[in-house]
């Protein structure tokens, strides 16, 4: 070992999270613009290259007018209304049933052990395959979509509620008891406020699952709804409008998801 000189640290500054200053807002915005421009550039290049058959990759110059045109048509708004109604109804049914079921499972250890594994493993299965059954039970109208959507939103809400109920800090319950809170007071002053966040998390997940299930069911068999509209444009091979509609749908899904997420975080 050398007796003199200086020992220096190896250059591994990128590992040292504190040492690297957080990227500036301008840089972040710059990267975002660059990435967006890159994607659009590649898209337009593909569109112009003629590699794909016909209008499969239409230029933005076609997609954007088609999208705006769609927003100006009644057909979009009536179908949006149908999908919104189906989703909201499905979510309402799924949420009421899910919260009730979640509370039951959360409160009783035996029931939880007996039934939660089924919910847990059933929850992520491809629920759309239950659609034929829903059609037999509820017909081909909106009822079968609501039923399937309710089924999809039920599971995450039930699981999240049950987990939230179990996750309540035991000491809070003991505090409530020590103040001799009544059963009703325990429910409204301790359990419900403490479970707000997990229940809302379940609602957000249930909304996502319900919406996508309703839309997929509409693509399969229906005569209204945005999923139905997707299939209409696909069958007419109106690609520009199809892209426009999907963009609108992704934005709608993202915005509603973010709104519920904000409500959820406000509970913390």
């Amino acid at each position: 070992m050398a007796a003199t000189g200086t020992v220096t640290a190896r250059k591994a500054a990128w590992l040292d999270l504190d040492a690297v200053a957080a990227p500036s807002r301008a840089a972040v915005a710059g990267v975002r613009v660059a990435v967006a421009c890159g994607i659009i550039g590649i898209w337009e290049a593909l569109s112009a290259s003629g590699l794909f058959f016909g209008d499969v990759v239409p230029s933005l110059a076609k997609i954007i007018p088609a999208m705006l045109g769609l927003l100006g048509q009644d057909v979009f708004w009536t179908n949006l209304q149908a999908t919104a109604w189906e989703t909201v109804a499905a979510l309402a049914i799924g949420a009421v049933a899910g919260v009730a079921c979640g509370i039951t499972l959360g409160a009783n250890e035996f029931l939880r052990k007996a039934y939660e594994p089924f919910l847990y493993y059933f929850s992520p299965t491809p629920r759309i395959i239950l659609f034929p059954i829903m059609i037999m039970w509820f017909g081909i109208g909106i009822e079968s979509k609501i039923a399937l959507g309710a089924l999809a939103s039920f599971f995450p809400i039930a699981l999240s509620t049950a987990a939230g109920m179990r996750g309540i800090e035991r000491v809070l319950i003991r505090v409530g008891r020590s103040f001799r809170a009544s059963g009703w007071q325990m429910a409204t002053k301790i359990y419900l406020p403490a479970m707000r966040v997990p229940v809302l998390t379940g609602v957000r997940l249930g909304f996502g699952g319900g919406l996508i299930t309703v839309l997929l069911a509409e693509t399969k068999l229906s005569n209204k709804g945005l999923g139905y509209l997707v299939m209409q444009y696909y069958q007419r091979f109106d690609m520009a409008t199809l892209y426009g509609l999907l963009i609108i749908l992704f934005v709608l899904a993202g915005v509603s998801n973010a709104l519920i997420g904000r409500w959820e975080r406000a509970g913390r």
């Binding site: 839309l215 693509t219 199809l242």
Partner: peptide, 18 residues
């Protein structure tokens, strides 16, 4: 994160065409 949450499956007609 937004991509992960987006209902991409719904774009299946596009993938069929592409």
């Amino acid at each position: 994160g937004a991509l992960a949450a987006a209902p991409i499956v719904l774009a299946f007609p596009l993938f069929l065409v592409l």
